[in-house]
């Protein structure tokens, strides 16, 4: 039977979680090292390098069997006078899950293929180079126009178990998404 103190602690937690001010003491966000557009014969491909990081809470959740999902978002934006317009977008979801029996990490690729890794670093290494398989048509970019390549690695909170979701928006331990990485394109 939970004590009165623990009940009070729960209420206090609720209040604290609902409190809008957040304490971000340490950052665990993913970093996009680089991203660039490579011109091929008839299309473009994108190369990117992402460094993933897990907070202690996220690491504990992973080892307790909670699958974690990142969505690597790719956008090509045309620079406008007032605002940019997105002319192309692509999203690649990567799901990382730990298998306690085999003591291996499984990465579910955007193509629904499963890759098993003995270490977490090996899994992250695999995920660090997203495979944008869908080529970008060459005629998408007009000559004389200015474009930006935008890449972001977004941690998908909505794929977490339901009880974790509300708090993942408030707890800095779950702020695992990267910022937008912007790379100018000139054609």
């Amino acid at each position: 039977m939970p004590s009165l103190a623990s009940t009070f602690k729960s209420y206090l937690l609720i209040c604290l979680l609902l409190w809008p001010t957040l304490s971000v003491a340490e950052s665990f966000v993913a970093q996009i090292r680089h991203a660039k557009l490579i011109a091929n014969d008839h299309n473009f491909s994108v190369q990117a390098k992402i460094d993933y990081e897990l907070s202690p809470t996220a690491k504990e959740a992973l080892h307790k069997g909670v699958p974690l999902t990142w969505i690597v978002r790719l956008e090509i934006r045309q620079i406008g006078s007032f605002w940019d317009s997105t002319i192309y977008k692509q999203a690649l979801p990567y799901q990382l899950q730990f298998h306690a029996l085999l003591n291996q990490y499984e990465v579910l690729t955007p193509n629904n293929e499963s890759e098993m890794f003995l270490t977490l670093n090996a899994a992250f290494r695999f995920m660090s180079t997203p495979n944008f398989t869908k080529p970008i048509p060459a005629d998408l970019l007009q000559t004389g126009q200015h474009y930006k390549l935008a890449v972001k690695c977004q941690f998908d909170r909505e794929s977490l178990p339901v009880p974790l979701r509300p708090f993942s928006y408030l707890d800095a331990q779950w702020f695992l998404s990267s910022n937008w990485y912007l790379w100018p394109i000139q054609k």
Binding site: S10, G65, V66, P161, L164
Partner: peptide
């Protein structure tokens, strides 16, 4: 792992 989260 979700025990406390569930309660809250």
């Amino acid at each position: 792992f979700l025990r406390n989260s569930l309660k809250t």
